[in-house]
């Protein structure tokens, strides 16, 4: 049992982080806190992918001079594909955060607050 838990501890950590983020996104009332939850959520997934790519005893995915001409043993280098996917996912995460922050600025300009329940009250009063 202990062996089993240890052999996959990366995955447990990622699940824990992800749940933390998900709770922040659903449970928190402040818009910026929701956004922070979203970031934790995305970073957790990045951690998961990077964990897929790792190999025990392997080195970074840059070929050494003697391996250049097709003789490279894949066991000696980390799996590059998850790293590549996560480069894309990081950029996507940043872009989403940027757009969300832009929307938050719009919300703040309109209601002068970032707490969800206060915004709801203001909207109820103005009848929208």
């Amino acid at each position: 049992m202990f062996e089993y838990i240890v052999s996959k501890y990366n995955y447990w950590v990622y699940i824990f982080l992800m749940m933390l983020g998900l709770y922040g996104m659903i449970g928190k009332k402040n818009l910026v806190k929701k956004l922070i939850g979203m970031n934790i959520f995305q970073v957790a997934i990045i951690l998961f992918y990077i964990s897929i790519g790792s190999k025990v005893g392997a080195s970074i995915p840059i070929l050494t001079a003697e391996d250049l001409h097709g003789s490279a043993n894949p066991l000696h280098y980390m799996n590059p594909l998850p790293h590549v996917l996560m480069l894309t996912a990081i950029v996507v995460g940043i872009a989403t955060t940027g757009v969300a922050l832009g929307i938050i600025i719009m919300v703040y300009n309109r209601y002068k607050t970032l707490a969800e329940d206060e915004i709801l009250e203001i909207r109820k009063k103005s009848g929208v």
């Binding site: 052999s7 996959k8 995955y11 790519g53 190999k55 025990v56």
Partner: peptide
């Protein structure tokens, strides 16, 4: 297992 060099993904 984490870091298994022969996992299907690799």
């Amino acid at each position: 297992k984490w870091g298994d060099p022969n996992q299907p993904g690799s």
